[in-house]
Structures are given as C-alpha cells and as structure tokens.
Design a protein around this nucleic acid. Structure first.
Length: 765
RNA sequence: UGGGGCGUGGGCUAGCGGUAAGCCACGGGAUUUUGGUUCCCGCUGACGUAGGUUCGAAUCCUACCGCCCCAGCCA
C-alpha cells in the first residue's frame, strides 16, 4: 500500500505491453503522438499525449511526436508550431524524435508501386460519387469498378503519370484491391492515393499525389519503428486495413494498433469540428479563448500542466465510452494551485466601510502571509489599513439567513489579517441602495466570520474576467432533440468586472504567476491583454464554496429530466443465427440437432450449440464414445471446450474426444476434483495427451481423506485468525475465502464437497 | 440492415474462478483569522437481464437487452 500511491494505474494497454515485453515480441517500447496539424490541441489530445509519452517513460521506451501531414489542403505551419509548443508546455520532450508523415512520402510511393506490381492495387478513374455508389451499403456488397482489372503495366504507367502531375485533381485515385463484399466497409477497395495539386507546408510542390490516412499511418509507424500504435475507438474498423497494408508491403516492422476511448467532459465539446465552429463563427475570441478546452485556452485561463497531467492520469484508459465530470478537472486545478498560488485580496463588487473610530489619515501596515499555515510556505506582503476599506457587497446582508457568517447590522466580523469590526449603521441613497457602512473597530466583539477586504485609498484597479463553463448543459453534443450544441452556449460564460479593487501588492504580480484571491478563486494575469499599468486577471476556477451549495440546493434539480430516446437499433446477426444457417446448409448438422435433442435428451440450447459446426459435434461424439455419460460430456464440451477455443474452431485444439471423455469419467468417479480436472484440461488444450498420465505425473489425484483435509483446514485457520473471528461474528461470506485457501493449499486436489462440510464444522467450533 | 466494439454505486475506474476495491461527488463531524485546505466517519451493499457450469461466478458458457462506431478523394 505504501508505494502503490505513485504507481501508475493498471490499464489494458499496460497489460498488453507487459505481455509483449515478457514474450520477447518487443524489447523496447516505441509509441507516438500523431496529431494532424489542422487545428489546436485540446484536453482530449492531452489524454493521448500523457498516455503515449507516459507509457514510453514508464517502460523505458521512447515516444515520437509526429505531424500527420498528409492533407495539404487543411494543414498549416501555424498549427505545427502551436502543437509543438503545447506538447512541450504539457511537460513532454521528444528529443530528436520529431517526425512528419511527409518525411516518408518517397518510401510510401515506392510501396505503392510495389502493390501495383503485385496486383494488389489499381488506378481507378471513377469519380467520387461513383466510387461511393459502387461501394455498396451496409447490407449490400459493393460492385467492382470497371477499371479494377487493368493490367499491371497500365496501372504502373497511370500511377507514374499521376505522380508526374498529368491528371487534374479528382480524375483518378489509387485503390487497394480489397474485398468488395467485406462486411467491413473500410475494406471495400480502400483509397490509397488521391491527387491534390496543393502546396504542402513542408514538401511545397514536390508532390501532387498524397497518401490517405489508412495507407500512410501504418507505414509511418513501421518506418519509425513504432511498436504500439495507440489511437481512439473510432478507428477500430480501420485496424483491418492497417494490418493489410503492413502485410502487403515490404514494411520494415510490424507495429500493432490498439484503440482506447476518447475523452469526453461535461459542459464542453471536444471535437475538432465543433471547436473550429466556435472559433470560426466568433462564439469565442479565438483558439486561445480561456473558455475553450484547447491547451492554449486552458493555459491562458490559468490551468497548469501539472493539473492537466494529474487529471489525465486520474480518468484512466479504457474502451468504454464515458464522460468525465468537469468538476473533476476543476478539482485537479484547485489541488495544484492551493499549494502554489500566493494569496491576495480582491473586491469585485465593493461597498465602502468607514471605520468611524479610526483617526483620519492614520495608516496601519498589516503583515499578511502569502500562504496559510497548512500550506506551509514562506512569504508575506503588507496591507495598509486606513479609515476606509472596501468589502464585497455579497458579504453584507441586512436580513441575514440562518447560518450567516458575514456582516450584518449590529454584527461583527474580522477583517482578514486585521481587526474585528462591528457594523453600526447602513448608509443608503434615495433609492434605498446601500452605498456604505459605518463600523467601529472593536477587538472585543465576537467575530461572526472573516472577510477579505481592500484598503479604499490604496486600492489598485484592475479588470477581472470571470470565466465559467462554456455550455449550460452537461452534454451539449448529445441533445435528445438533436439540437445544435450552440443552442446551449452559456450566456454568462464570461462576465467582465471592469474596475475591481485589489490590495496594493497585486500591482507587483509578475505575468503568468497564479494567485488566489482569498475566499474567491484562482486567477492569473491575462497573457495577452494585461499590462503593468492596466492589469487584467482571468479567473481560472472558483474556490469550492460549500455555503453557495447549501443555499442553492433548490434549482438545478428542477430542470426537467429529458426523456430517454427510445432509439431501438436493429440487432446484428447472432451466433444462434450463424449456427442455424450452418444447419440449413449441412444436413448432417441438422440431423445431429434432432438426434442430440430427441435421442440423447439434451436441452434445446445445448443441442444447438453443439451443432453449429462439424468439429464441435465430432469432438462431442468422440468423447461420448469414450465415456457414455451424456450430461457430463455435454457440460465439458459446452462450458469448457467452447471457452478454451474462444472463437477458433474446436478442431484447432490438440484435445481429442477420447481424452475429454476419459477426463469426464475421472471426475465422475471421484479420481479428480473439478478444479484439478481443470488443470488437466488446460494441459490437454495446450498440448494434448492422456488425462490419466497427466494426473499421475502432476500428482493431481483427488484427496478425499478427511484427516488430510482437516490438517490443511487447521493450518488455514491458524494462519488467518482475523478472518476466523470475523466469520464467527457473522461474516459468512468469508467461507469462500477459506475454501479458496484450502483448495489452494491442497493444490486443487481436495474434494470440494467434503472440504466444505469439514470447513463449516471447523469454523463453527 | 452487414460488421466492429462497450455495459461494475450518482460520475470515472480496479478486478482476470476464492472477503467487490479506489478516486470524485454526496452526507455528517473535527481543526481553521479563506464557508478554502487538511483529517476522520458514513455512502448496509454497484457487477445490464435471464438461464447454465462450479463447492464457489463481476470473472467461464448460452440467450436476450441497451449504448457507441463504420457506407469522405478527412484524420
């Protein structure tokens, strides 16, 4: 437990890498983060960056940064610079491992000629609409293009002329000869190259044909020596082409693609398209608008790389689509900033207090620590207390609710770092609006609470930008009624306070330094607009506010829960249907179904499972020939054999029916316990052989000797006194624990029924 | 509709045939010159559903249900 804190969370990718390293498939891990330079990186990319660079770091490997620049029409040098800056800011270094897809254009082209020569690719002159039409639909197979059977020579000539620029954009493409009937649409003759007479940010006008993602990506990985190519879930269908390309070209390595679920967060959107729309239509001030989930926006808002990394670590890596609470992200920021942001006082909406018993003109310098004691960091500043101070309008109430710990008529509060003041009078204008308070300094009064404040005369003025979540609903991109996310833009995502009053020390804040305005939130000076003589602060996140939460309670919940959409999707072909179709084709299988059910007396579902293919039934019958106990053999085949075979055909296992029958007999005759039988079975599945021999060699004969078992039980009980006590106090669930211990100690050989009885007896006494 | 994936408390995750665990949120309490922080306690019960195998199933088998992705010359 002591070291588990800093150990990275287990996830399926780490398990895969562990296995690859152990089996010797790879001796070093190479990952990559491959953004397309057509936009800015956002928090979703951060998850991928932390994953890829983190994996490389933790397994002693390397992670490449790669610009996936295969489409010159959308990509720009500006974005490339932004991406490098953002990855570096997040805290990751790629050393000399910076690559561009365009570095490999020459090799990719050579591989394309290779495919053409091998008859695996052809130049298609169908236009885009026709290709789409010929591709078929989800339920209908595609049709071959009329150009599909061109000769190798013709294809080679055409491909070279494509490269030479003889054809205009869109006249033809290079396609792989896939499988037009494939249920995976991606395999229906995928496009490899298209003509784009556009200038590329790096290769300029050298090329006029550019490789498609599905062709380029596996080759980039292989050429760079990437071992684990990690992408998001929507590319699962593309994995088949990924593998196809690597198998049909002389690629120098064999990387594997793995997919994980992309990040989603409440109250924001994380798709490049929607982000681009927000910027393009002017709903935000740009890619670095502090409300944007872009790294540039978050940085400007006041997020720290540490907070973002902690967050990415905390959300985990899985294949389950999910959405993380924005609260979680904010919490990570607060945790980080609490320890690094020096405190300052700022009043956003002031009321002036006149301290009537302080002499006019007298100023008392008060020392204020930069951090509270529990943070334990040094530093302080001076706040000058005069006769007049500002406090927050919301910190005064003429009719305070129950539990009010702020100022009210006749009440007293402490001014933070200063004296206790008592309110003696409220000053109002003709409209009844409070314009000021008259208080007395009275250190003997009982303070209701502590208020932040700012000296009126010495206050510094600043603009303060209060940022809030960009959208007002949790899932702006998943409206049940299908409305555009923009419908849910939060109208108060930015509130500007033009002339907030800050304590004098605020003038000394250096750019990019995070501060906490006490009792309010964490802020940073705006890196674009803030100047020494015209300060601008951005609110990164508020402080937690349990008082506000208590007061709210009512609303929020009132928002009507939207009816869940009753979108019933058609189901896919089930395994049952596959088996039924097999029987329709094969009369022998159909006959078996009837025989198993009517003659052998199997129930419908078992008979069905055994007759979906010949191999399963063959094994079943061979086992029966060796041991004629139908229920027993059925159980073994249905539950164990099918599990061991996974989706592979049963006859791909070295296990014979004869051996299986013999094994079933041994269990029934109490020679083997069930768990020992599973060990034997595991070996049979692995290597085949004779169960009797395996049992003998591994000493797995069942122990039904009560004395021997009782000895083991006594040992187990002695070794776990706490569990015994808990069991006797009523935690009966622990019986499973004890059973497990005894079974383990006996090497799985103890007779379970007997063991259970003996165990219960021993535990009772 | 063919195919590929995914279902563990309110949210996110761990688990890999043997006591269902952690974080966040939530509720209480203590400390506090930030209604902050920190620390305790609680969240008596979450493995999509139904069958089956097993002494024992979140884990293995079967069926069903729900959700996501794919028919760009985007990535």
């Amino acid at each position: 437990m002591s070291t588990a804190d800093d150990a990275p969370k287990s996830n399926f990718l780490r398990q895969i890498i562990d296995a690859d390293l152990e089996s010797g498939r790879h001796s070093q891990v190479v990952t990559r983060f491959p953004p397309e330079p057509n936009g800015y990186l956002h928090i979703g990319h951060a998850k991928s960056i932390c994953l890829n660079f983190g994996l490389a770091r933790d397994f002693g490997g390397v992670c490449h940064l790669r610009m996936d620049d295969t489409n010159p029409e959308t990509e720009e040098a500006e974005y490339i610079a932004g991406i490098e800056r953002d990855v570096r800011w997040l805290g990751f270094e790629w050393g000399d491992k910076l690559f561009h897809a365009s570095d490999f254009f020459e090799e990719m082209y050579a591989f394309a000629e290779h495919l053409v020569r091998a008859g695996e690719a052809y130049v298609d002159h169908l236009d885009a609409d026709a290709i789409s039409d010929y591709r078929g639909t989800l339920r209908e197979a595609g049709r071959p293009s009329p150009y599909r059977e061109r000769s190798v020579d013709e294809n080679l000539d055409l491909l070279r002329r494509m490269r030479a620029g003889e054809f205009a954009d869109g006249t033809c493409v290079l396609r792989a000869k896939g499988d037009l009937a494939s249920p995976n649409m991606k395999m229906r003759d995928p496009l490899l190259y298209r003509i784009r007479k556009a200038s590329h940010p790096r290769t300029g006008d050298t090329w006029c044909i550019y490789p498609m993602y599905d062709y380029a990506h596996p080759l980039e990985d292989a050429l760079e020596g990437v071992t684990h190519s990690i992408c998001t879930l929507e590319f699962e269908n593309n994995r088949e082409i990924y593998d196809w390309v690597l198998e049909h070209t002389p690629a120098p390595a064999r990387p594997r693609q793995y997919e994980f679920a992309r990040l989603n967060i409440t109250y924001t959107v994380l798709s490049k398209r929607k982000l681009l729309q927000l910027v393009g239509e002017g709903h935000v001030a740009g890619w670095d608008d502090p409300r944007m989930p872009t790294l540039a926006g978050m940085r400007r808002r006041g997020y720290t790389p540490e907070a973002i990394r902690t967050f990415c670590e905390a959300v985990g890596v899985t294949k389950t689509n999910s959405r993380v609470d924005m609260e979680r992200l904010e919490g990570c920021l607060r945790d980080d900033l609490n320890h690094r942001a020096p405190r300052l006082m700022a009043v956003l909406d002031p009321i002036e207090i006149e301290l009537v018993n302080r002499p006019e003109g007298e100023v008392t310098p008060l020392e204020a620590a930069s951090f509270p004691d529990d943070v334990g960091k040094p530093g302080s500043r001076t706040v000058p207390l005069g006769r007049r101070v500002f406090i927050e309008r919301s910190d005064f109430s003429e009719a305070p609710p129950k539990g009010w710990r702020r100022l009210s008529p006749g009440g007293a509060v402490r001014l933070r770092y200063g004296p206790i003041v008592r309110c003696e009078a409220v000053v109002k204008d003709a409209d009844g609006v409070i314009t000021g308070l008259r208080c007395v300094v009275d250190d003997d009064a009982r303070a209701n609470g502590t208020l932040h404040w700012v000296p009126a005369e010495a206050a510094v003025r600043a603009e303060v930008r209060l940022y809030d979540r960009l959208f007002s609903v949790e899932k702006p991109d998943q409206d049940p009624a299908g409305r555009d996310p923009l419908t849910f833009l939060n109208p108060t995502s930015l509130v500007v306070v033009k002339d907030a009053r800050l304590e004098p020390a605020a003038a000394l804040v250096t750019p990019a330094t995070h501060v906490q305005f006490e009792r309010n939130g964490y802020y940073v000076t705006d890196c674009v607009d803030s100047r020494a003589d015209a300060l601008v602060f951005n609110r990164a996140v508020t402080l937690r506010d349990s008082w506000a939460r208590k007061v709210e309670t009512t609303d929020e919940e009132a928002a009507a829960p939207v009816a869940k959409k009753a979108d019933t999707r058609p189901q896919k072909k089930t395994r049952a249907q596959v088996r039924e179709e097999a029987r329709a084709r094969d009369a022998e299988l159909a006959a078996r179904l009837t025989r198993y059910r009517d003659v052998l007396g199997l129930d419908e579902s078992d008979a069905d499972v055994l007759t979906g293919d010949r191999a399963t039934g063959d094994l079943f019958e061979a086992a029966l020939a060796a041991y004629a106990d139908v229920p027993s053999v059925t159980r073994w085949v249905v539950n164990e054999v099918l599990a061991a075979a996974k989706d592979a055909p049963v006859d791909s296992l070295p296990l014979t029916g004869e051996a299986l029958g013999a094994l079933a007999r041994m269990v029934d005759e109490n020679v083997l316990s069930n768990s020992a039988a599973k060990e034997v079975f595991a070996e049979l599945v692995e290597r085949g052989g004779d169960p009797a021999e395996i049992t003998k060699r591994r000493g797995l004969r069942q122990v039904s000797d009560a004395d021997a078992i009782e000895t083991i039980i006594a040992e187990v009980l002695a070794a776990h006194p706490d569990e015994v006590a808990r069991y006797r106090e009523g935690n009966q669930g622990l019986l499973g624990f004890f059973m497990g211990q005894v079974m383990r100690r006996s090497g799985g050989k103890a007779n379970p029924g007997l063991t259970r009885r003996l165990l219960q007896k021993a535990l009772a006494g």
